[in-house]
């Protein structure tokens, strides 16, 4: 499975377009992570705990995207776009949306 943000795959023309697919992952940092993140907010510095949460959400979204592509018989996803949003009452949850075009090369 080729997953790429570009619109072409070098040297391999698209044989078949299988439609737009998207996948989302909504993830909550737990209260301890929020506590540690809160400390970082006060004392400054990089918040590794939140970074890991974002990384995890991104991985999950891309994985789900690949699953969907496989299910429609694609062997590549082109033009992949990742969107990061915070949602929930006070923005304490993270949402990652991955979308792209499933194609057969």
């Amino acid at each position: 499975m080729i997953v790429t943000t570009t619109h072409y795959v070098e040297g391999r023309p698209v044989q078949e377009y299988l439609g737009i697919i998207n996948a989302q992952s909504i993830i909550g940092a737990n209260i301890f992570k929020d506590f540690l993140g809160g400390l970082r907010d006060v004392f400054g510095g990089r918040s590794k705990t939140y970074e890991k949460v974002i990384e995890q959400a991104k991985e999950d979204a891309l994985r789900e995207l690949a699953e969907k592509a496989q299910a429609v018989g694609a062997n590549a996803i082109i033009g992949v776009d990742l969107d990061f949003e915070t949602i929930g009452g006070s923005g304490s949850m993270l949402m990652v949306i991955a979308s792209g075009t499933a194609v057969r090369l």
């Binding site: 499975m1 690949a66 699953e67 496989q70 299910a71 429609v72 018989g73 694609a74 062997n75």
Partner: peptide
């Protein structure tokens, strides 16, 4: 047949196109 393979922690998923044109995983 040509197949796309996704390897997860507990399983591998094989996606391919059957002779009749249907997709199968």
């Amino acid at each position: 047949v040509e197949a796309t393979v996704l390897a997860y922690e507990k399983n591998i998923a094989i996606g391919f196109r059957q002779a009749n044109g249907d997709n199968s995983t």
